[in-house]
Amino acid sequence: MRLFRFFHRFASPREFFRIAGSMIPWLAATTLLLLLIGLYLGLFVAPPDYQQGESYRIMFIHVPSAWMSLFVYMVMAGTAAIGLIWRIKLAHVIAMSSAPIGASFTFLALVTGSLWGKPMWGAWWVWDARLTSELILLFLYLGVMALYAAFEERRTAQRAAGILAIVGVINVPIIHYSVMWWNTLHQGPTVTKFDAPSIHPSMLAPLLIMSVAFMLFYAVVLLMRARWEVLDQEQRSNWVDDYLEQLSP
């Protein structure tokens, strides 16, 4: 019951703005710390790969961003559904603030994959199943963002883009498996990915630390974006006036 009350309070724009504001510095500091530890372990401590040499190290950025690209899409569709079903304004704000962050993670995963692919596969881009579904994921993000930007009225924009995000989340697995199927049909044996079940702990540790750091980074940026979105959305209410007066004496 207390938990429910906490969420109820947290969902009110004013309380969200206050609580998020006090959480951001702590989260940001932890993110920075973990990023530094993860990068140090990944770039200096972890040994070079016996086949790929030093260039495998881009994995410590690439793999977490690829994971985040899917995770953020799930969060976006989930919060959009919550917003549509229970008509919670804040859920819509979270969903729409997630879209550009998720698109950035997807873009980062594509760029780092491409940079890694050039020395490893000898090509910047291969129509590999995973690459292609990541690219389509980026298109889905861009669609949600474009639809959100197209409406004048914020409420309509949030709900319309939310419906699109939910339709997209049903399609993500279908697209993924259809692309995998298409690729195996047309290209025969694809470029072998390192499907290593036993990754060495010295490489696994930085990867996991980086994943947690990326997750926290998402939380920080999301809260920052959502805060300003809430401020803009509630610009007619008294507490926003009070807050802005505090800022500029």
């Binding site: 298109f139 889905l140 669609g143 197209a150 419906i163 699109l164 997209g168 399609n171």
Partner: peptide
């Protein structure tokens, strides 16, 4: 249905729909 209220929905419609047509 999502773009019918917009004056210029054509290109946007393509952007929304084409990724879903891939499978």
């Amino acid at each position: 249905a999502l773009t019918v209220g917009l004056r210029r929905g054509g290109i946007l419609l393509a952007l929304l729909i084409l990724p879903l047509y891939i499978p």
